[in-house]
Amino acid sequence: MDATQVRIDDIVKGHDVVLFMKGTPLFPQCGFSSRAVAIMEHLDVPFHPVDVLQDMEIRQGIKAYSDWPTIPQLYVKGEFIGGSDIMMEMFEAGELQALMADSGVKAG
C-alpha cells in the first residue's frame, strides 16, 4: 500500500462509521453525497465524514481502495458497504438499520 492507501485505511479502521463524501454534512457539494447524508441522519447514528474535495490524494485513492469509482462511499466497522444507491436500497429494505444494530453502532 502506498502512503495514501495507508492513510485511508487508518481513517476507515479508526471509526465505526465513515462516509467519504463531497462537501460536508451541512453543505454537501453533490446530490449523491447529499442523499447519503440524509440517510445517515435518518439512521441517527454518529458517523465520521471525510470531505474528499479537501484532499485530492484521498479523492483519487479512495476509488482504488475499494475498487469503487464513485463517491460517496460508506464504511461500517472497516468494511465497504456501498455508494448512495446501495445505501438507499438497503435503507428502504431496513437492512442498513439492521447492519448498524448488528455492528453495535448506537443511535446518537
Binding site: F32, I81, G83, I86, E89
Partner: peptide
C-alpha cells in the same frame, strides 16, 4: 451482492464514467 452487481456494471462502463459521465444512479 449489491456491491458486486454495481461493480460489474461500473466495469462495463469504466471509461465512460471516467471521461464522459459525471453521475450515474444505478439500480
Amino acid at each position: 451482492s449489491r456491491v458486486q452487481c454495481q461493480r460489474a456494471v461500473n466495469r462495463a462502463l469504466a471509461d465512460l464514467l471516467e471521461e464522459r459521465v459525471h453521475a450515474l444512479a444505478l439500480k
